[in-house]
Amino acid sequence: MTDKKLNLNRRTLIAAAAGGAASLAAPAILRGQAQAAEPVTLLNVSYDPTRELYKAINIAFAKTWKGRTGQDVTINQSHGGSGAQARSVIDGLQADVVTLALAYDIDSIADRGLIAPNWPSRLPDKSTPYTSTIVFLVKKGNPLHIRDWADLIKPGVQVITPNPKTSGGARWNLLAAYAWALRQPGGNANSAKAYIGNLYKHVPVLDSGARGSTTTFAERGIGDVLLAWENEAYLSLAEFPGKFDIITPSISVLAEPPVAVVDKVVDKRGTRAVAEAYLNFLYTPQAQDIIAENHYRPRNAQSLAKYGAGFPKLPLADIDADFGGWRKAQATFFADGGLFDQIYKPG
């Protein structure tokens, strides 16, 4: 039995996949503080561009948790398109926490009863410990003089953005473009839709995820402008020094990638305490600094001030105030027959 328990702790994923976890996890409820010395693992299922961020966070959290409880914690990371990751969790991937690109994907998991429906209110700031926004990445020196959204639909300009059906980042891209079009003089739903239709006529390739689009733009040399997460744009600058510039448009969107504990999984595995501590840790000044260093915008005012140079102030559309929340935005823009499907209707 001792052997089996050790095995469970070290290789929980394998054990869970084998279906043995349920019976073996029973003693885990008793574990808690009393047996705190036993090592524990968490699985953080996240979206595409957060690899580097959570690598740094995990090291810091393991140290903090060890100091507080004496327990060793190992956090495994899984990354992919936000929607696909949500589907994996729904289909049985044993994620203790999910840290996805948009609230709709966590809502989808909650709709299947794996997460309590009140998840956004369980942590500060709608359970989004960091934000980001959408910026333009252009070739060094900005030869086409791309300054704002209006420049993206000039003749001959090609824009790279992933498919909003499969990529969370791409949905933020489309919403940012829409928000800009809506706020132009005389802007309304029709003119904004027309702008979106026009914009996607300038898109020659639709990759399935943000990283795919970055590769298409940066390595294959396709297109003139990449619509990118701010943090992803900074990563590209570091990866390809001297090749690209970041352009901040006049308006963008406040992208809020939320986090949540997967209730069904942590209760089964007895990892609720450490999983909740992990997400709470994201709000500490230490983690907020790490977040800022990885080019996500921290919620903490001191961290934001410290790293403020990398985060230009610009008007940001809000998913709740401007789009009526993710469920409504999803139905209007991205569901079957939504605005994105309409712009590709032939004829």
Partner: peptide
């Protein structure tokens, strides 16, 4: 998927549409 461009009506293959439907949780579609 890496070489197609994946543009609707032009270079979008049927298996990609299946993936797209799945990512909208539309299993029936």
């Amino acid at each position: 998927i890496f070489i197609a461009g994946n543009m609707p009506m032009k270079s979008e293959i049927a298996p990609l549409l299946i993936i797209i439907e799945l990512s909208q949780f539309n299993y029936a579609g």
